[in-house]
């Protein structure tokens, strides 16, 4: 056992961080939302990350990818979360091991999980080249596990209306106005489960990045802001908010890393079919990381005081994204039920 990130994993995270540092990030204080093309994607950032190979990370080497595992993916996605990178990163990274033509990042792939109930929102629709849809085969009952399948749909053929006022201003939403969908079936229920499970893991990693970067932001502000003649971070009332933020981020990261390693290990041992330990670990990671991101966003705003509630500090972007991601790839109650089932 050596649960520390390897040198290579840290180097990968560092490389992703360097690329992200060269582009504007929506959460930076005093900066406007970066100008993006249609669909809310910063195309230059997307291209630079694609060049680094982040989409083909888990695609086998003989199919043009890097042939790495989830243990590496979660390092990349924590960095994306820290920078609040905006676009269909998770869905494209999920699609690439399935369909190697997406490993290069030349195409943007979205994912919509229609098994999670209405309303059916599609993110970044105008920027997509393909859309994967997880849907229930018969009827419309809400199931997280079971008779689902994965379709590939041409975005241009979809009937969808733009949502005029999405809460997260960086992620354009469309409301799907068409069911059933026509498309090519590319996966069965097992594929659908795997996609949703891996999506939950990457989302948890992204949320951990939000929780971690906000801890740093709050701490830096608490050191610099003075009231009553001293830095507010010297007051235990504020210091303890920061300590709890750190504890939430660290625990979420441990859970995410553990789930990633278990997923890699169990797949190596048992194949794709049945991953009991890893499935529970992913749900645990998603629960903790969602909590950490949302609670840390609130705490960061609290530490920043009145200005924390404004657009000027940029903290609201993190909170809005954390809320949205808490509802993606399984919400808290669903993951809690999955864990309970396994107990």
């Amino acid at each position: 056992m050596d649960f520390r990130p390897t040198e290579d994993q840290l180097a990968l995270a560092g490389a992703v961080r360097d690329v992200l540092g060269k582009h504007r990030s929506p959460g930076t204080p005093g900066e406007e939302v970066p100008e993006t093309g249609a669909g809310g994607v910063d195309v230059a950032l997307w291209r630079d990350l694609a060049e680094l190979g982040v989409f083909g990370l888990r695609t086998p080497e003989d199919a043009g990818g890097l042939g790495l595992g989830h243990a590496e993916s979660v390092h990349v996605f924590e960095e994306l979360g820290r920078a609040l990178a905006t676009g269909p990163y998770t869905a494209t990274a999920l699609a690439a091991p399935l369909l190697p033509e997406y490993a290069s990042g030349r195409h943007r792939v979205g994912l919509s999980d229609l098994t999670s109930g209405a309303p059916y929102y599609l993110e970044h629709l105008d920027a997509l080249d393909a859309l994967l849809v997880v849907e229930v085969v018969d009827g419309e009952t809400h199931v997280f596990h079971g008779h689902s399948q994965v379709l590939r749909v041409e975005p241009i053929e979809l009937r969808a209306e733009p949502v005029p006022h999405p809460v997260d201003p960086c992620v354009p939403l469309h409301r799907l106005c068409q069911k059933p969908l026509r498309g090519e079936i590319i996966g069965d229920a097992a594929t659908a489960d795997a996609l949703l499970r891996e999506g939950a893991l990457l989302t948890a990693a992204y949320q951990t990045g939000i929780a971690a970067t906000l801890t740093e932001r709050a701490v830096a502000y608490a050191k610099q802001r003075t009231q009553f003649g001293r830095a507010i971070g010297s007051f235990q009332a504020v210091k303890h908010l920061c300590a709890d933020m750190m504890a939430r981020a660290e625990l979420a990261r441990a859970a995410v890393h553990s789930a990633a390693v278990l997923l890699d290990d169990e797949r190596a041992d048992r194949g794709e079919a049945d991953l009991p330990a890893a499935a529970t670990a992913v749900s645990a990671a998603k629960l903790l990381a969602d909590d950490a991101a949302v609670a840390n966003a609130r705490a960061a705003i609290q530490v920043h005081g009145g200005m924390g509630c404004t657009w000027e500090m940029g903290l609201h972007y993190f909170l809005k994204r954390a809320w949205a991601l808490s509802l993606a790839y399984g919400r808290a109650a669903e993951h809690a039920d999955l864990i309970a089932e396994a107990l």
Partner: peptide, 16 residues
């Protein structure tokens, strides 16, 4: 379930 998640994460943190 939430406590199970918390203890799993704490166990992972011990290993870290």
């Amino acid at each position: 379930a939430r406590l199970a998640a918390e203890f799993d994460a704490l166990w992972a943190l011990v290993k870290r």
